[in-house]
Design a protein around this nucleic acid. Structure first.
Length: 566
RNA sequence: CGGGGCGUAGCUCAGUCUGGUUAGAGUACCUGGUUUGGGACCAGGGGGUCGAAGGUUCGAGUCCUUUCGCCCCGACCA
């Protein structure tokens, strides 16, 4: 490509509404441009990067026997009715009617479409397993798109779906896909972690997220500092505590505690460690048939993890609840306790099971119980509802948990029969009995990977593309195109590299040295060969973008030199 | 969806509080000249329904009402 003919509109200034480095640099360097909230154009450079990532994904999918398909973007609303997700997705589904007034939905993900394709075509265990995928534009009318390509409404996703006769076979496929996803991320040159994730309301028996490590990530993950364990903080576990603070000693008693409401107040008032106090967090839980306030009890030094709370209470959603609402239910904010609590359901963190010497609210204003023995509540609902904290012990080894920020670029799911059942996608097993197909689903955000790559690989000058993702591997920068020797040398090298299939661009613009260097650094070509004033001495220079090191090379050796480094 | 901010040249912004020449700067773009190793310089030039609609006024970019869009925080996010 000739830079002089290329559509690469770079700018010196950042767009005023960009916050993230990836958004700023992808815009400034002319990879993408914004159209509306969450909608972006891919310019030539952006499109090239997109295709590179797609190519890597295709190669790795083919290696594991997944077959590429392309399902229609516009999907009949009927299918979404059938699966029940037209309600669940709500406004995120962009709906519209065609000229015949039929209702359609722009595909936000394609479980329904894929099951529809496969049902009645795959009808025997002999046809299984089957793994189909596509790389396609998706549309979700997000309430709040943001951060450029990171969270668009329209975005490119690789979505794959596998079909199996048995759970064991799904487990095998799931592991294989996890390995394939890891290979993709390695090839892309990204620092990532595969972590356990919440399976939530979708059900299924497990899911993992592929997180690119970056401070700008929207997810918090807890990872072990010595083993492979990692989990989204929404679901992270910890080892039970090896050391516990000195327990207070007291007989069961009611104590007057005027205005002592918070855990800090209790610690100070009773001079005990928060470990022996009981925290009560009230939440309003949403269910299909209405709302219900639920009390969640934890040790005073723990925090409620809302996603775990939703799962424990088998609710759909969680919402905060006001003091007024609590009072209306006859509860006493600041002094709520588990004993004789008959007004609303309660969930107890497992760390409270059998706990003794606890201090908790007495459900009366300015009153607490001390010396509480939790074994009286053994029949209550216990579940893990704590938030694993940084520094907690790893559940699998002796290590400690660290918090990191991650960008979720992939999510793989063991779906089971969540979709095949409602959509009646059955196959006949060896005994001739009909069973629903057992499914896995595997998503990867292709456009988000572009943003994630730059979040992890940039400096104050601009993008730093890796070898596999760069729009062009080599940029030949002719310092002064009016210098005939420089131009001729650059053109010749350009031809040579093109002939051997190197993706090369020649900066033959009538611009000054500094201007072209700034662009080269902003765009982030891995190598820029500077053909400039040193040519008269038989030298050119190679700028390596990642390190910004400039290296002199004999002009006659430059072809071999660069080929060696690609 | 709740809270906040912002819409003026392709881009970044000043001007709005306190209404009053022909609406400005930088940058980008075009022409000519000089320059050529870190986003050059000089001269000339093109480019605006001041987001939109309505209102107040002799007069509105500026005041009022409505509305649309974009960004940020939160809620939400298979």
């Amino acid at each position: 490509m000739r830079f002089s003919r290329a559509f690469i509109p770079t700018t010196k200034e950042a767009p005023s509404d960009a916050v993230l480095a990836s958004h700023i640099f992808l815009t400034r360097a002319g990879f993408t441009s914004q159209v509306a909230a969450g909608l972006y154009n891919y310019l030539p450079l952006g499109k090239r990067v997109l295709k590179k990532i797609e190519q890597i994904v295709n190669e790795e999918m083919n290696k594991v026997g997944a077959q590429e398909v392309d399902l229609s973007f516009v999907t009949p609303a009927d299918l979404w009715e059938e699966s029940g997700r037209i309600e669940k997705f709500g406004k995120e589904l962009l709906r519209f009617r065609d000229r015949k007034e039929n209702l359609f939905v722009l595909g936000p993900t394609h479980e329904e479409m894929m099951v529809n394709l496969v049902r009645n075509r795959v009808t025997s265990y002999k046809q299984l397993p089957l793994n189909l995928y596509q790389i396609k534009t998706k549309f979700r009318d997000e309430a709040r798109p943001r951060f450029g390509l990171m969270r668009g409404r329209e975005f490119v996703m690789k979505d794959g779906y596998s079909f199996h006769a048995t759970q064991e076979d799904l487990d095998r496929e799931f592991e294989m896909m996890e390995a394939a996803y890891k290979r993709i991320l390695v090839r892309l040159g990204l620092d990532f972690r595969v972590v356990e994730a919440d399976s939530g309301a979708i059900g299924g028996s497990g899911s993992k997220e592929i997180m690119v490590i970056a401070d700008s990530g929207e997810d918090t993950i807890a990872i072990c500092d010595s083993c492979e364990y990692g989990a989204n903080v929404e679901t992270a576990e910890r080892a039970s505590r090896s050391e516990v603070p000195q327990a207070p000693e007291s007989d069961f008693n009611k104590f007057s505690t005027p205005n002592v409401k918070s855990i800090e107040d209790l610690e100070a008032f009773f001079k005990v460690d928060a470990y022996y106090t009981m925290k009560c967090v009230a939440k309003k839980m949403h269910y299909e048939d209405g709302d219900q306030v639920v009390l969640f009890f934890l040790r005073g030094d723990d925090d409620l993890q809302e996603v775990k709370a939703v799962n424990a209470a088998e609710a759909l959603e969680v919402e905060d609840v006001s003091e007024e609402e609590l009072k209306a239910l006859g509860l006493v904010p600041g002094f709520m306790g588990p004993l004789d609590m008959d007004k609303v359901p309660c969930v107890f963190d497992t760390s409270l099971k059998g706990a003794t010497q606890m201090i908790c609210g007495a459900n009366e204003k300015d009153q607490h119980f001390v010396g509480v023995d939790m074994s009286v509540l053994d029949e209550a609902l216990f579940a893990d509802i704590y938030t694993a904290k940084e520094g907690d012990g790893c559940p699998h080894c002796e290590g400690k948990l660290l918090y990191k920020k991650g960008i979720e670029v992939g999510h793989i799911f063991k779906l089971g029969t969540t979709y095949s059942k409602p959509l009646k996608a059955d196959f006949l097993n060896e005994k001739g009995q009909a069973e629903p197909l057992i499914m896995g689903t595997y998503g990867m955000g292709i456009s988000r990977l572009i943003a994630a790559t730059i979040e992890q690989h940039h400096d104050e000058k601009g993008c730093i593309w890796t070898k596999e993702t760069a729009p062009y591997s080599v940029n030949i920068m002719v310092s002064n195109i009016k210098d005939e020797a420089q131009l001729a040398f650059g053109e010749k090298l350009y031809q040579q590299l093109q002939e051997v299939g190197v993706e090369v661009i020649i900066d033959d613009r009538k611009e000054r040295f500094g201007f072209k260097m700034k662009d080269a650094e902003l765009i982030g070509f891995p190598f820029t060969i500077i053909v400039g004033k040193e040519l008269v001495n038989g030298n050119v220079q190679v700028l390596e973008r990642a390190t910004l090191e400039k290296r002199a090379v004999f002009a006659e050796k430059i072809f071999d030199d660069i080929m060696e480094r690609l």
